[in-house]
Design a protein around this nucleic acid. Structure first.
Lengths: 145, 145
DNA sequence: CGTTGATAGTTACAAATGCAACAAATATCC
DNA sequence: GGATATTTGTTGCATTTGTAACTATCAACG
C-alpha cells in the first residue's frame, strides 16, 4: 500500500530531525531529571551560564532561540533551587545578570561531564568525516535562512 | 568567559538536533497551520496515512514514536474535520482502521508537494554526499540504541 | 523636561502535553 | 469454561507551553 512518487515521508528532514532530537533528548533528560529534578529548558539555561559565563536572560534568549517566557520561568525555578542568582545592573535596571551559585556550578560540572560522555556514545557510530558533516548540516539547518 | 576543555555546548548533538528541528518544523508548520488549521501531530498522522495507506492508531504509534494519547487526540480532531474516517475491524474490535477521506487525500496531496518543495530548499545547501550522510546519521540517531 | 517609543522581563489565560487510571476486547493458561 | 493478563484506545488531571497583555525602565526627540 506504499504510494508512488519521489518523495518519502521518512526522508522529510524536519520529521527526521524531530525524531532524532526527541530520541536523544529524552534519553539524556533522564540524567538531569533524576539528579536535579530539572526540565529541559532549565538544563539549557544552566548550560549556557556554565559554558559562556554570566549572561542576562535576554542574551540566553538570543543565543538559544528559546522563548523569553520559557527562559523567565526556568530562571525563576533555578533561582528557587539555588542554582543561580540574579544581580541588578545599576546602569540599566531593566537587566539582571544571572550567575551560577556554587551549587549551580557543581551541577553544571557534573552534567557537563555526563553530556560529554553521552555525546561520545552518540558520535562513535560515525566516522570523523561524517561527524564533521553532521555538525555542519545541523548548524546550517538551525539558521532561519 | 569561555570555559576550557574539549566539550562545547554548541556541539552537543541533542541540543543541535533540537535547534535544527525547531527551526525547520516551525517554518514548515506555517503551511499546514495556515491552510488547514492543523497542529504538528495532526499533520504527522495525516502524512502517515497518505504515505503508507490505511493504518491503525497503534501502527502509527509504533512507526512514529508519537505517544498514543497524542495520536488518539489527533485522530479525533482529523475525524471531526472530515480528513479521515474510522472503520471497525470485525475480527478484532479493539482495532480501528483509519483511512483518509477524499478531503483528507486532497489535503495530503497538497501538503506532500509543499513538503517536497520545502525539503528541496533545505537540502540544496548541501552536496549529494552530504545529504546521504545527513540522512544516515539522523536515521541512526533516531534509534534508541 | 515631557511625550512617545523601544526594551527586559513577568504574568494571566488558554491550549497542548504527559502520566496514570480506565474501559473494552482479546489472549493465555489452568 | 473461567480467572487472569495483555492489548487497543480514551479520558481526567496536573504540568508545561504559547500568545498576548502587562509593568518597569530607559532612549529619542521635540
Amino acid at each position: 500500500m506504499i504510494q508512488n512518487g519521489p518523495f518519502q515521508l521518512d526522508e522529510f528532514i524536519p520529521y527526521m530531525l524531530n525524531r532524532a532530537a526527541e530520541t536523544t533528548s529524552l534519553d539524556f533528560q533522564k540524567i538531569y531529571k533524576d539528579s536535579y529534578g530539572m526540565l529541559r529548558t532549565e538544563w539549557r539555561v544552566l548550560f549556557h551560564l556554565g559554558r559562556y559565563g554570566d549572561l542576562t536572560a535576554k542574551q540566553i534568549c538570543s543565543m538559544s532561540d528559546i522563548h523569553k517566557t520559557k527562559v523567565s520561568r526556568a530562571v525563576s525555578k533555578l533561582e528557587r533551587q539555588r542554582f543561580l542568582q540574579r544581580t541588578e545592573v545599576p546602569t540599566d535596571r531593566r537587566h539582571e545578570v544571572l550567575s551560577l551559585t556554587k551549587q549551580g556550578r557543581s551541577a553544571f560540572d557534573h552534567l557537563q561531564s555526563e553530556a560529554l560522555k553521552y555525546n561520545t556514545t552518540l558520535l562513535e557510530r560515525f566516522t570523523e568525516d561524517e561527524q564533521v558533516i553532521l555538525r555542519r548540516c545541523l548548524t546550517e539547518l538551525s539558521k532561519n535562512k
